[in-house]
Write a protein that binds this DNA or RNA. Structure first.
Ligand SMILES: Nc1ncnc2c1ncn2[C@@H]1O[C@H](COP(=O)(O)OP(=O)(O)OP(=O)(O)O)[C@@H](O)[C@H]1O
Length: 981
DNA sequence: TCCAGCATCATTTTT
DNA sequence: TGATGCTGGA
C-alpha cells in the first residue's frame, strides 16, 4: 500500500487489509452477510487502479447480476471518474463472455451474428426433439422443462452432449445385458435430445445462456492472446459460481494468477443451477498460495435480526460454525406474525407498512420496504393488498418484460434481421399478423428447407423470388407481405438505422397495432409495452454512444468497444438483462420492492418482510436440497437492516376448501429450541411499538435523523383516521398446547397475552389500540444482559410435554405487568452495566492453514453523526449465535412514566398473564395519539388524501414489470394472456 | 386454420 | 383459483 485514500478510510482494519492486500496474489475474502464484502471489493478495485497503478483496462470484475455490476460501476465512477470505469472489464460472466465472443467469434467457429437463445426458446427446441421419443417418453415421464434443466446443468459442468450420451450409454450397458434391444434409459434419451439440441443451436447460429460460458472457456483457454490484457480478476458471490464459471475465471487469470474472490458459503443458494460451493476449496488447491481473509463484523443489521438469522442457518448440521457479530444495538426483535388466511396475511403486510411509515414520521419511505418471496406467484395477493392500501410497489428481477408476447414478437422480427438462420424467431412471426400459415404449411416449409440444406427463411425468399418452385397450395401469396417487410427492414438495418427506428418501421410495415387490436382484448396495454420497448431501445442506443465516447480517448487492443451494430447490441442486452437492472430512477425509490429471495441477494433494506413462512414454502415442497432452502431463508432475513417480519397464514385454500398449513420447520425448530432453553424468543408475535425511543434506535442504526415529533403525530393521526386495523395475529405456541390457552400455562413474560380463555383463537378480546393490537410492552433486547441478571430458578412444567424447564425468575410474580420501553441503550446507559465486550471466537471456520486477521475494531464512528453519544458506549460486541444468556431485563425505565408516555405517545405498559383480561385494562390507560384537538378540523380531506390516495399504478410501471392489473408469476386474468405462442 | 369451451392440474429459484 | 392443454366444430 502506498498511501491511504479517503475511500480506504471507510473500511475497518480487516476490510482495509483485504482491500489493500498485495495485488500479485490470489485472495479469498470470506465473510457473512452485511460484512462489507461488496464494499471491500469495490475499494480494492479502486486501490488497484489508484495506488497500484494497474490500468483499469487490465482489470476484470465479475458480478453475479447486471444490477450488481451497475451499482458497482456507479460507486466506482464516483471514485475514479467515467473514463477509467468505462475501461474496466466489468459485468456478469455471461455478459462478459457475450462481448468477448462477439469480438473473437471467428476463433471459436461461431459466426459473429450469433443470437443469444433465451430459456423459453431453448425449452421449445428441446420439446420438439423430445417428441421424437414419444413412445419411450411415456415410460419415463420426461418433460421439456426437466430435460432443459438437465442439459443446462450438464453444460454448467462442462459436460458436452457427446460426453453425456456416452456416459448414459455406458451406464446402461453396465446395467443391462449387452446386445439386447432394451428400451433406452431416460439418461440416454436426454443424451440424444442434448445432441439434437446442440445441433439445432449450431444450425440456427444460436448460443444459449450456458453456451456463452462454454464457448467463453473455449475462447480464453484456447487463445491466450484474448486474455493477455488481464492483470487482475475479481469475482463477487463466488459461492454461487459453477464449474464452467470457475474454469472461465482460471482461464482469464491464466498467466497472471492474480485473483480476488469474495463469497460466503452460507449464502450459496444456486446449487439447483449447478453452482458449486466446492469451488472455494478447488481454488485453494489450484492456487495453493491463496490467502483467506475473514470479515466478521456485520454492519447491516441490528443484533436481534442477526441473532435470529444466525440461529436459522445454524440448524444446518453440515455448516461450519462461524463468527459474525455487530456493534449495532439489538434493536427491535424480529416479528413472526401469523394470521388465518392468505388475504389477511397480505393485508397485514400492507397495513403494517403503512403504520410504520406513519409512526416513523417520515423517516421511512416506501422505498425502504422489501417483500421477499420464495417464488414469484406469491406476489399476487400481496400486490393486490398493497394496491388496495394505495401503496406503490415495483417488482424486481426476472425477465418478465421480455417474455411478453408483444415484446417477443417485435424482438423476433429484429432477430431475424440480424440472424436469418434463427428459426425460432421465424416460427414466431411468420404468422404474425395472421397470414393463414398454420402448422401444416410450416412443417412443409421446414422439411423442404432441411432437404435443401437451407434456412427456412432462405427457402421462403427463394419462393418469393420464384427461384424455387412454390408449394401446391401456394405459399408465395401468403408470405408476400412478410418477405417484403423483412427485406425492407434489412435494408434499413444495413444502412445503419438504429433499433428504435427499426421497430417503428416494423410496426408500420406489419400494422402491428392493428394486429394487436384484433387479437388481444387488452391490446392497449400491450401496445404500451411495445412503446416501452422502443424507449428501452433508445436508452440502449444512447448508452452505447456514451460508452464509446468514454472509451474513445483510451483506445487499446483489448477494448471491448467493438464494432457491433446497434441492432445487435440491443438484442444482446435484451436477452441478458432483467427488470430493474439499471433502475436508479428516483420514482422507483419511492416504491415498496417486491422480489424473490434469490434476486434479493446482495441487496439490503431497512425493513424486510418475508411472507408465507410455512411448511410448504420454506423449504419449498418440491425442492431437493433442504439445507439450501434454509440458507435461502437466511439470506432473505439478513437483507434487513432494522426491522424484520416473517408472516404466514395458518391456512391455505386448495380447490375450494381450506386446509391448515404448519409453520416452516426452520422457524418452528428454533422457536421450540428457545422455548426449551427458556430464552427470550427470537421472534415476537405482535407488532412492535414505535415510540420515541424505538424510533431513535431505528434512526441510529440507519444513520438517519430522527423525525420531528409533530410530524410523527400528524402522520399517525392521518393513519389512525383511516381506521385500518391489522388482522388479528395468532401467537406462536410450543407444541402440545392448545393455542388459545397457551399463555395461561406458558409464561414468557414478554409474550403476547392469550387472546382469551375461551379457546377461540380468533376472537381477540383484548384491549385494542388504535392499531388493532393489544398494547403490550415491547421487551427490550438492547442491553447486553449481564449474566448476573439471569437467575434460573423456577421450575416450570410444560404441560404438553411433561418436561421440566427452568425458567428465569425475572419478574415476579407472574402474571406480570412489565413496563419496559423497548431496547434503548441510550435510555439505559445509566442503569445498565457496561456491556461486556466478548471477543469473537477465532476458530478458523474454513481451514486451519488460513491466515487469520486480527479481530476487528468493534467500533467505527457513524459516518453521519446522529447523536452526541459516541457509538462506543452503545456498542456491544458479542459472539454471534446462541450462547448468550438472555433475560428480559428487569430494568425499569429511568424516566417517569408520564414522560415516556408523552414522548412516545404509545402506551408502554401492560403485559398481562391472565386467562381473562382484566376488565380494568380494557381501555388502554393512555390511548394512542388520537387526532388531537389541537389538530382537529384540519382540512381533513387533504391530510387523509395525502396518505390514502391510492396513486393508481400508472401504466408505465405495469409495463416495465410486464404486468397488467394482475401480475407477475403467471399471467392470470382473461385479459392478460401469457406470451405463449 | 382458428377459436370457444371443457378438462386437468398444481403452483421454484435465474444468467 | 386460475392457467394450461386438448378437442371438436366453423
Ligand atoms: N466499515 C464499514 N463501516 C460502515 N458501514 C459499512 C462498513 N462496511 C460495510 N458497511 C455497510 O454495511 C452494509 C453491507 O455491506 P455490503 O453490502 O458490502 O456487505 P456484503 O458483505 O456484500 O453483504 P452480503 O453478503 O449480504 O451481500 C452496507 O450498507 C455497507 O455500506
Amino acid at each position: 500500500m502506498e498511501r491511504t485514500d479517503s475511500f480506504l478510510d471507510a473500511l475497518n482494519g480487516v476490510q482495509l487489509r483485504a482491500a489493500t492486500h498485495p495485488p500479485n496474489s490470489t485472495l479469498q475474502i470470506l465473510a457473512g452477510p452485511g460484512s462489507g464484502k461488496t464494499r471491500v471489493l469495490t475499494s480494492r478495485i479502486a486501490h488497484l487502479i489508484l495506488n497500484c497503478h494497474i490500468p483499469p483496462a487490465a482489470i476484470c470484475a465479475v458480478t453475479f447480476t447486471n444490477k450488481a455490476a451497475n451499482e458497482m460501476r456507479e460507486r466506482l465512477t464516483k471514485l475514479l471518474g467515467k473514463t477509467q470505469v468505462a475501461q474496466l472489464k466489468m459485468g456478469t460472466f455471461h455478459s462478459l463472455c457475450a462481448r468477448f465472443l462477439r469480438k473473437y467469434s471467428k476463433l471459436v467457429d461461431v459466426p459473429e451474428n450469433f443470437t443469444v437463445c433465451d430459456a423459453s426458446e431453448s425449452k421449445k427446441i428441446v420439446a420438439t426433439h423430445l417428441k421424437t421419443f414419444e413412445k419411450d417418453l411415456k415410460a419415463h415421464n420426461l418433460e421439456p422443462g426437466t430435460v432443459t434443466s438437465i442439459i443446462s446443468k450438464a453444460k454448467a459442468k462442462r459436460l458436452s452432449a457427446d460426453g453425456y450420451l456416452d456416459d448414459a450409454k455406458s451406464k446402461a450397458h453396465y446395467r443391462g445385458p449387452t446386445g439386447t434391444e432394451s428400451p433406452p434409459t431416460p439418461d440416454i434419451i436426454v443424451g440424444e435430445v442434448y445432441v439434437l439440441y446442440e445441433a439445432t443451436l449450431r444450425q440456427n447460429n444460436a448460443l444459449d445462456f450456458d453456451d456463452l460460458l462454454v464457448f467463453g472457456v473455449k475462447l480464453f483457454s484456447g487463445h491466450h492472446l484474448t486474455v493477455g490484457w488481464c492483470r487482475h480478476i475479481l469475482v463477487d458471490e463466488f459461492q454461487d459460481t459453477n464449474v464452467t464459471q470457475y474454469d472461465l475465471m482460471r482461464a482469464i487469470a491464466n498467466s497472471v494468477r492474480c485473483i480476488t474472490i469474495v463469497g460466503d458459503p452460507d449464502q450459496s443458494i444456486y446449487g439447483w443451477r449447478a453452482a458449486e460451493v466446492e469451488n472455494l476449496a478447488k481454488m485453494k488447491r489450484d492456487f495453493p498460495e491463496t490467502v483467506q481473509i475473514f470479515l466478521e463484523e456485520n454492519y447491516r443489521s441490528t443484533g436481534a435480526i442477526l441473532e435470529a438469522s444466525l440461529e436459522i442457518v445454524s440448524q444446518d448440521s453440515k455448516r461450519i460454525a462461524k463468527s459474525l457479530y455487530t456493534a449495532h444495538p439489538d434493536g427491535i426483535a424480529p416479528v413472526l406474525y401469523q394470521v388465518n388466511g392468505e388475504q389477511e396475511e397480505a393485508s397485514f403486510i400492507a397495513i403494517e407498512v403503512k403504520r410504520l411509515v406513519a409512526q416513523m414520521g417520515g423517516a421511512f419511505k416506501w422505498g425502504d420496504f422489501a417483500i421477499l418471496l420464495r417464488f414469484n406467484a406469491l406476489s399476487r395477493t400481496i400486490e393486490n393488498a398493497l394496491q388496495k392500501e394505495g401503496i406503490p410497489c415495483r417488482i424486481l428481477g426476472g425477465h418478465k418484460f421480455f417474455e411478453r408476447l408483444e415484446v417477443k414478437d417485435v424482438l423476433a422480427y429484429l432477430q431475424l434481421l440480424d440472424n436469418p438462420a434463427f428459426v425460432p424467431a421465424l416460427l414466431r412471426v411468420i404468422n404474425v399478423p395472421g397470414r393463414g400459415i398454420g402448422e401444416k404449411t410450416l412443417a412443409d416449409i421446414l422439411q423442404r428447407a432441411e432437404k435443401a440444406q437451407k434456412s427456412p427463411l432462405a427457402l421462403l425468399e427463394g419462393i418469393f423470388d420464384m427461384r424455387v418452385p412454390d408449394n401446391k397450395p401456394s405459399i408465395r401469396k401468403k408470405i408476400l407481405s412478410f418477405i417484403q417487410a423483412i427485406r425492407k427492414l434489412r435494408k434499413s438495418a444495413e444502412s445503419g438505422t438504429g433499433p428504435s427506428d427499426l421497430i417503428n418501421e416494423l410496426l408500420d410495415l406489419v400494422e402491428y397495432q392493428d394486429h394487436l387490436r384484433k387479437t388481444q382484448p387488452d391490446w392497449e396495454t400491450r401496445w404500451e409495452n411495445v412503446r416501452e420497448l422502443i424507449t428501452f431501445a433508445k436508452e440502449v442506443e444512447e448508452q452505447s454512444v456514451r460508452d464509446n465516447a468514454a472509451l474513445a480517448l483510451n483506445e487499446d487492443e483489448s477494448s471491448l468497444n467493438i464494432e457491433m451494430s446497434a441492432l445487435r447490441q440491443f438484442l444482446q442486452v435484451s436477452m441478458l438483462s432483467s427488470t430493474g437492472d439499471n433502475e436508479s430512477e428516483e420514482s422507483n425509490q419511492e416504491k415498496v420492492t417486491i422480489t424473490t429471495c434469490h434476486s434479493a441477494k446482495g441487496l439490503e433494506w431497512p425493513v424486510v418482510i418475508i411472507p408465507s413462512v410455512d411448511a410448504t414454502t420454506y423449504p419449498f415442497i418440491r425442492s431437493e436440497d433442504e439445507d439450501e432452502e434454509r440458507r435461502l431463508l437466511y439470506v432473505a432475513c439478513t437483507r434487513a437492516k432494522s426491522l424484520l417480519y416473517l408472516t404466514r397464514s395458518t391456512t391455505r385454500r386448495v380447490a375450494g376448501d381450506t386446509k391448515s398449513r404448519a409453520l416452516s420447520k426452520f422457524i418452528q425448530t428454533i422457536m421450540e429450541k428457545r422455548a426449551k432453553e427458556n430464552k427470550i424468543p427470537l421472534f415476537i408475535d405482535h407488532i412492535p411499538h414505535l415510540e420515541l425511543e424505538n424510533r431513535a434506535i431505528l434512526c441510529k442504526v440507519l444513520e438517519r435523523p430522527e423525525p420531528d415529533e409533530a410530524e410523527v403525530q400528524r402522520m399517525v393521526d392521518a393513519f389512525t383516521r383511516q381506521g385500518r386495523e391489522h388482522p388479528p395475529g395468532i401467537p406462536w405456541t410450543p407444541p402440545g398446547q392448545a393455542q388459545a390457552n397457551a399463555y395461561s400455562n406458558w409464561s414468557y413474560p414478554q409474550s403476547f397475552p392469550s387472546s382469551s380463555s375461551t379457546g377461540d383463537s380468533t376472537s381477540v378480546s383484548y384491549p385494542m389500540t388504535s392499531f388493532g393490537r393489544p398494547a403490550i410492552a415491547q421487551f427490550g433486547r438492547a442491553v447486553a444482559p449481564s449474566p448476573s441478571s439471569f437467575t434460573p430458578t423456577a421450575e416450570f412444567r410444560h404441560p404438553g410435554q411433561g418436561v421440566s424447564f427452568s425458567r428465569p425468575s425475572l419478574v415476579q410474580p407472574l402474571p406480570t405487568v412489565t413496563t419496559v420501553p423497548a431496547l434503548s441503550h441510550t435510555s439505559h446507559l445509566a442503569l445498565a452495566k457496561p456491556a461486556p465486550i466478548v471477543a469473537p471466537l477465532f476458530k478458523s471456520p474454513f481451514s486451519s492453514t488460513t491466515l487469520r486477521v486480527s479481530p476487528p475494531r468493534p467500533i467505527k464512528p457513524p459516518q453521519v453523526p446522529a447523536r452526541p453519544s459516541p457509538t462506543s458506549s452503545l456498542s456491544i460486541a458479542r459472539p454471534a449465535s446462541g450462547s448468550r444468556h438472555t433475560s428480559t431485563q428487569s430494568i425499569i425505565p429511568s424516566k417517569p412514566r408520564s414522560q415516556i408516555l408523552q414522548s412516545g405517545g404509545n402506551r408502554l405498559t401492560a403485559a398481562i398473564q391472565q386467562p381473562r383480561p382484566n376488565p380494568s385494562i380494557k381501555e388502554p390507560p393512555v390511548p394512542l395519539p388520537k387526532p388531537s384537538s389541537s389538530h382537529s378540523a384540519p382540512p381533513a380531506a387533504k391530510t387523509t388524501a395525502e396518505v390514502t390516495t391510492p396513486p393508481p399504478q400508472n401504466g408505465s410501471l405495469k409495463r416495465r414489470l410486464g404486468m397488467g392489473p394482475r401480475t407477475a408469476g403467471g399471467y392470470s386474468n382473461k385479459k392478460f394472456k401469457p406470451p405463449t405462442k
